[in-house]
């Protein structure tokens, strides 16, 4: 490497290196694919079990999906943090956004249960926030669009009570909000990102 730099060269070098650092996000596509698949499976199970007794068993798939997803995410995250070669401050912000989402989600489920109301439509609306913000932070448009899709789906779910329609809307929002952006993000991570 040359050691003599003109001011212009210095500035270009700084811009280039800061640009490299900005691309060094952790790999997070796994979480979108995992949770997208789990939520679709839970929604389909809920639809198929909708007439079973006792009534609480209708929603058992959500509990199983939540526990399985939580354990897998924790193990994956722990392994990933061990092998990361760089940590980006934005990774922490994305993590905090999702932690705040999970806390609000749990409160909504609890409140929905106590009030005997289906929290699904509100949770779908809520899912738009972290998805949209993650897309903005990563500057990744499919996730920004995913956030908007959750908002639209959340509104649509408030306008119907038909189990089949609710299932189609929810599963569709998961496919277009999590799964497809997750696949696209995974391709980008494999091609561009090193962390």
């Amino acid at each position: 490497m040359h050691t003599e730099l003109t001011p212009n060269e210095s500035l270009k070098l700084i811009e280039s290196m800061i640009g490299q650092a900005k691309k060094s996000f952790s790999r997070i596509s796994f979480y979108f694919l995992l949770w997208g698949a789990l939520m679709i499976a839970a929604m389909l199970s809920t639809y198929l079990l909708r007439n079973t007794d006792p009534a609480w068993s209708n929603g058992i798939a959500w509990g199983v999906a939540g526990i399985v997803g939580g354990i897998v995410s924790f193990v994956y995250g722990a392994r990933q943090s061990k092998s990361e070669i760089v940590t980006n401050p934005m990774d922490g912000i994305i993590g905090q956004v999702w932690i705040s989402f999970v806390i609000t989600l749990l409160i909504m489920i609890l409140c929905g249960g106590l009030a005997h109301r289906d929290p699904g439509p509100m949770i779908t609306l809520l899912t738009g926030i972290p998805t949209f913000l993650t897309g903005r932070i990563l500057r990744f448009r499919p996730l920004i669009a995913g956030g908007v899709i959750f908002w639209v789906a959340g509104i649509a779910m408030h306008l119907t009570s038909d189990p089949m329609t609710l299932t189609v809307i929810y599963c569709g929002s998961m496919v277009f909000g999590y799964i497809i952006p997750g696949i696209m993000l995974k391709r980008q991570e494999n091609g561009l990102r090193t962390a």
Binding site: M1, H2, T3, L5, E9, S10, L13, I14, S16, M17, I18, Q20, A21, K22, S24, I85, V86, T87, N88, P89, G92
Partner: peptide, 18 residues
Amino acid sequence: HNQLRLAVVSLLVGVDKA
């Protein structure tokens, strides 16, 4: 004011640690 040292510091400015 050295190409490699400046590159390293510019890189580290954008991350927590590397």
